[in-house]
Amino acid sequence: MTQHRFNHWSEIKYLKDIVTNPMIEVGEYSYYSGYYDQHDFEDGCVRYLWGDEKSRKLFNPAEDYGWVLDKLIIGNYVCIASGVVILMGGNHNHRSDWITVYPFVEQIAASYEPKGDTIIESDAWIGMNAMIMPGVRIGEGAIVAAGSVVIKDVPPYTIVGGNPAKEIKKRFTDQEIEWLMEMRWYDWDRKDIERAGHILSSSSIHRLYDFYQREIRPCPTNGNDNELDLTRT
Score class of each variant (00 low, 15 high):
residue 1 M to C: 10
residue 4 H to V: 03
residue 4 H to L: 07
residue 7 N to W: 01
residue 9 W to K: 13
residue 12 I to R: 15
residue 13 K to S: 06
residue 14 Y to L: 14
residue 15 L to C: 02
residue 16 K to V: 03
residue 16 K to I: 08
residue 17 D to L: 05
residue 17 D to F: 04
residue 17 D to K: 07
residue 22 P to W: 06
residue 23 M to P: 01
residue 26 V to W: 01
residue 27 G to N: 01
residue 27 G to A: 01
residue 28 E to C: 05
residue 29 Y to E: 11
residue 32 Y to F: 09
residue 33 S to T: 01
residue 33 S to N: 15
residue 33 S to E: 14
residue 34 G to I: 09
residue 37 D to T: 14
residue 42 E to C: 07
residue 43 D to G: 02
residue 44 G to K: 05
residue 45 C to W: 00
residue 45 C to V: 11
residue 46 V to S: 02
residue 47 R to V: 08
residue 47 R to K: 15
residue 54 K to L: 12
residue 58 L to E: 11
residue 61 P to T: 06
residue 63 E to S: 10
residue 63 E to Q: 13
residue 65 Y to F: 15
residue 65 Y to V: 10
residue 65 Y to T: 00
residue 66 G to K: 04
residue 67 W to Y: 13
residue 67 W to P: 10
residue 68 V to L: 06
residue 70 D to W: 13
residue 71 K to Y: 12
residue 72 L to Y: 05
residue 74 I to Q: 00
residue 74 I to Y: 04
residue 78 V to C: 01
residue 79 C to N: 13
residue 82 S to L: 02
residue 88 M to W: 00
residue 91 N to C: 11
residue 92 H to G: 11
residue 94 H to G: 06
residue 101 V to N: 12
residue 104 F to W: 14
residue 104 F to L: 07
residue 106 E to V: 07
residue 106 E to H: 10
residue 110 A to L: 09
residue 112 Y to S: 10
residue 114 P to C: 09
residue 115 K to S: 14
residue 116 G to H: 11
residue 118 T to G: 07
residue 118 T to S: 05
residue 122 S to I: 01
residue 123 D to S: 02
residue 123 D to N: 08
residue 132 I to C: 05
residue 136 V to Y: 05
residue 136 V to F: 07
residue 136 V to H: 06
residue 139 G to K: 01
residue 140 E to A: 14
residue 141 G to H: 00
residue 141 G to I: 00
residue 142 A to L: 08
residue 142 A to E: 10
residue 142 A to R: 09
residue 143 I to K: 03
residue 144 V to I: 13
residue 144 V to D: 06
residue 147 G to W: 09
residue 150 V to T: 09
residue 155 P to H: 07
residue 158 T to A: 03
residue 159 I to Y: 02
residue 159 I to H: 07
residue 159 I to A: 05
residue 160 V to W: 02
residue 162 G to I: 04
residue 163 N to W: 03
residue 166 K to A: 11
residue 173 T to D: 05
residue 179 W to D: 03
residue 180 L to W: 01
residue 180 L to P: 05
residue 180 L to E: 02
residue 180 L to D: 02
residue 181 M to D: 08
residue 182 E to M: 06
residue 183 M to D: 07
residue 183 M to S: 06
residue 185 W to K: 09
residue 185 W to C: 03
residue 186 Y to W: 15
residue 187 D to E: 09
residue 187 D to I: 00
residue 188 W to Y: 14
residue 190 R to E: 13
residue 190 R to G: 08
residue 191 K to F: 06
residue 192 D to A: 14
residue 194 E to Q: 13
residue 196 A to I: 09
residue 198 H to C: 08
residue 200 L to E: 08
residue 201 S to E: 15
residue 201 S to G: 13
residue 202 S to Q: 07
residue 202 S to H: 04
residue 202 S to T: 12
residue 203 S to R: 11
residue 208 L to V: 10
residue 209 Y to M: 03
residue 216 I to K: 04
residue 216 I to H: 11
residue 217 R to W: 09
residue 217 R to Q: 15
residue 219 C to F: 15
residue 225 D to L: 15
residue 226 N to L: 12
residue 229 D to C: 06
